[in-house]
């Protein structure tokens, strides 16, 4: 069966273009569906495999030889490090993420600070590997409530798992990426409010092509598409800011 798969893949490459494997920060789970749909209108022969997870985990795995083509991080630090260490080509920021407070319970979140104080549990992504987790923690510090709520924090492995904790009703409130909530799958389940900007550093998200890519041309094609006008429109529609 393996042989057939390999043959199939080879045939696919020759006749129909490439399969691009993308390791993407979890906040991109829904926006990338729209983005690739648009991409495939232009390049119908390219196919995609997406792996979603925490950017820090991907960083470690890529250093161990993770066989992917494009890495879309939730920050610029990890792609920059990979670039400096020789694992990746020069990265470029593609979007600026925003943090939102999210609940599916019947609670008032118009004032995030008091909502966070009142909530029994708070879902936040693991700050050691997820940039949105760092933003979440700095928000708590910014409100000067970190020490009061620290023992109520439930850490998600990545930002979509964090959002899922809230969506399933298991955690009343969470600090998650705004873009996920603009997707109907999560947004329609509850309500959300943006966290005012000065409370956390803008989440500038960078992408890069991994040097071990099997098809550099196709990877670059997709990488460049992320900065095209059509793509920018999609980023904006999912609430992202656009880096200059």
């Amino acid at each position: 069966m393996k042989k057939f798969l390999v043959l199939g893949l080879l045939a696919g490459k020759i006749c129909f273009g490439a399969t691009i494997t993308v390791a993407a920060a979890a906040d991109l789970r829904f926006v990338l569906q729209n983005l690739t749909a648009l991409y495939k209108k232009e390049y119908p022969h390219d196919n995609f495999k997406f792996i979603y997870g925490a950017s820090g985990n991907f960083y470690n795995q890529i250093r161990q030889g993770y066989p992917i083509d494009v890495f879309m991080s939730a920050d610029t630090r990890y792609p920059e490090l990979l670039y400096k260490q020789g694992f990746a080509y020069k990265p470029r920021p593609y979007a600026i993420g925003k943090l939102a407070i999210y609940t599916t319970k019947n609670m008032d979140i118009s004032n995030p600070k008091s909502a966070l104080l009142k909530a029994q549990k708070i879902a936040i992504a693991n700050p050691r590997v997820a940039p949105y987790g760092i933003a979440g923690i700095s928000t708590l510090h910014c409100y000067h409530i970190y020490n009061q709520v620290a023992n109520k924090i439930v850490y998600g492995e990545n930002i979509i798992q964090t959002a899922q904790y809230v969506a399933s009703g298991n955690v009343p409130v969470g600090l998650v990426s705004y873009s996920l909530l603009l997707a109907p799958q999560l947004g329609l389940k509850g309500k959300y409010e943006l966290i005012p900007q000065p409370c956390y550093k803008p989440i500038v998200q960078g992408a890069t092509v991994i040097k071990s890519t099997k098809d550099e041309k196709a990877s670059m094609r997709f990488f460049n598409f992320l900065y095209s006008p059509q793509a920018i429109a999609i980023w904006k529609s999912f609430g992202y800011g656009i880096p200059r």
Binding site: L5, T21, A26, R29, K49, F50, I51, Y52, G53, Q61, Y66, P67, I68, N158, I160, Q161, Q164, A167, Q185, L186
Partner: peptide, 21 residues
């Protein structure tokens, strides 16, 4: 490493499905 079509096994797929809701 959860690579679709290569190393994504059934038990990992469940984990991913749950995350996707």
């Amino acid at each position: 490493g959860d690579i679709p079509g290569k190393t994504r096994t059934a038990s990992i797929a469940i984990f991913d499905y749950v995350q996707e809701l």
